[in-house]
Amino acid sequence: MNRNSNISKDLSAQTAGRHRVPSWRSVFMAVALVLVIGCVGKTPPAQAAETALSFDMHAYTDHEGPICKGDQVLVNVIVERHSAPGGYGDELAELAQPVTGVEVKGLVLNPDIGQITSPSTTGWTGEYRSAARFWFTAENYGETTIKFDGLVVTPGWFGTKWGGGAKYVGVLFPVKVSPCSYKVNTVSTWKAGMTSVGTMDGKMKSDEQGNFTGSAVVNWVASIVGGGGCGSASGIAPSTAELTGKLNENGQLVGRVNFGPTSASGFTWCYYYGGSSTDNFFTPDPLTIRGFSEGASVYTQSQAVTAKNGSFTGMATIVVIPDEDEATG
């Protein structure tokens, strides 16, 4: 259907509606109008015109890394209608619109691998445009496919409401659940006259029950302070840290780093009065672990340390990264 034929049809329809017999003059004017509009080239059909409508379904997730056992992965499913009416020439853009109100069902073809939430309707309920939202819960290692489908029933687009014109659309969404592990790095800093820094590079792995555990060494360094003919140095022995965690209902790794005690030996000297040594023990407070199975998660947290001579508050930077090298399956 081309542009000119549409316009011709419109004009003849209007003419017929008024029961007027076109004179040669009006015919000439109509032809002239067709030519003028043809030059502008963008007048669409005001009346119903047969148009190719196509529907498709897209399923996507923001989840980027491996899916871990215990993960809950949000899958958005949208149904789009594409229409390309005639009458706009070669420059016509396809009009793609989300279709709301489509009930979408999800089926995990191998239910041993995981479960999908109940049917959901495409609509304006989520943060994304007109998506039906599903949560896939990964229960076991392996691969499967989620089959989504829905019936598009749009009476305005198919003629009569009860006269058929419905189309099933569907999409297959493959899923792979892998064993996962995380790298957890912490850098703790206290500034109390001198700067003390503890660094830990740990790793957590999950067991069959989905419990994540790991242990790591914490290395310490403290600055030398001095002035006015006096100085102070401190040596802090390496200590240990235990890491524990579990995936919560949102698929987020939640856990903590428990730091063991460590000892510090300090030495203070002054040129005129000589030197003296002191010993100290301290234990840093635990840190919270929060990580996702996709991308790094970096955050800061205040951290106190309790020593013989008091308590001091410092700051820790925590980095939690899925260890994709460890993901198998």
Binding site: K42, E50, A59, T61, G65, W157, G170, P174
Partner: peptide
């Protein structure tokens, strides 16, 4: 590339239908 799936698209289901679009001259799909 990563062995996981982020997005999948179905085959298009196409029909012919009578559709009424607006009477104006302006088209702005994007």
């Amino acid at each position: 590339a990563c062995g996981t799936s982020d997005s999948q698209t179905s085959e298009q289901e196409t029909i012919q239908a009578d559709v009424v679009f607006g009477p104006g001259a302006f088209v702005h799909p994007d």
